[in-house]
Simulated scan of single mutants.
Amino acid sequence: MNLKCIIIDDEPNAVSLLEVLIAQTTQWQLLGKCYNALEAIDFLKKHTVDFIFLDINMPHLTGMELAGLLPKETKIVFTTAYAEHAAESYAFQTIDYLLKPITLKRFLAATQKIEAAFGRQVIMEKTEGKPDDDYFFVKSGKTLRKILLDEVLYFEGEKEYVRLVTGTEELLIYRRLKEIETQLPQPFIRVHNSYIVNTKRLNKIQDNHIYIGDKQIPVSDKFREGFMEMIRQRIF
């Protein structure tokens, strides 16, 4: 995937390492290297990038402070030697949070997350404006039951079948969760190997869990980025 990025970091060795990793493992265009926040602000006024690698601990203006000055839609991969800023970083359009020293294995995992994030964005742009079907049918014995999408709270995978939960009933569907996932429109999203949720019906998000009514549903590492990307679009 041909993406455009820049590196913002006051440590020359860290910049050089990222530059080598980008060159050797991706097809991305590294448009620039900035060694402080003011230099980065000036660069971004003149150039358009898809995302930025942003160090957190920089003098005068930290990476978090700089992120707060950038357009809300700016996608960021934070880089830092400190883990304690991870939760704070997700107030922004954060794709990943890389701890220094960055290893090749961890960088390759980050490239997959980055390209997956932009792949989802392309799909969303292609489907934007298309009307979604507001119902579907579920086979129950010899009957096809009509289910309104807005009434569905979540789907829970249980081995060979899926439990469909609404505000008033539960139904078993003898299909795999992955098959159902491919047929669902937004605002449904996979948050765990065992759960697809209707984001219209969630009440709150707290400590890597979401709450729909009285149900607490975990958000796994595998699906957290895609889920938070959707949620960030509605954070005021």
Results as ranks from 00 to 15, higher is better:
K4G: 07
K4Q: 11
I6P: 02
D10R: 08
E11F: 02
L21Y: 13
I22S: 07
T26D: 06
W28R: 03
L31C: 10
L31S: 05
K33T: 08
A37C: 04
I41L: 15
I41T: 14
L44S: 01
V49A: 00
F51V: 07
F51A: 05
N57M: 13
M58A: 03
H60T: 13
T62C: 00
L66T: 10
L70A: 02
K72W: 03
K75M: 11
T79N: 04
T80S: 09
H85R: 05
H85V: 01
A86S: 11
A87C: 12
A87K: 15
Q93T: 10
I95L: 01
L99A: 00
F107A: 09
F107D: 07
L108Y: 03
R120Y: 11
K126N: 09
K126H: 10
K130C: 06
F137V: 00
K139E: 04
S140R: 13
G141S: 09
L144N: 11
L144E: 04
I147V: 15
L148C: 08
L149T: 13
Y154E: 05
F155K: 05
E156F: 08
E158V: 11
K159Q: 13
V162Y: 09
G167Y: 06
G167W: 08
L171S: 07
R176P: 13
K178M: 11
I180K: 06
T182N: 10
L184S: 05
P185C: 01
P185N: 01
P187Q: 02
F188P: 06
N193T: 11
N198I: 03
T199G: 00
H209F: 15
Y211R: 11
I212K: 04
I212V: 10
K215V: 07
K215W: 11
I217N: 01
S220Q: 03
F223H: 15
F223R: 05
R224E: 09
G226R: 05
F227S: 02
F227T: 04
Q233L: 12
R234K: 15
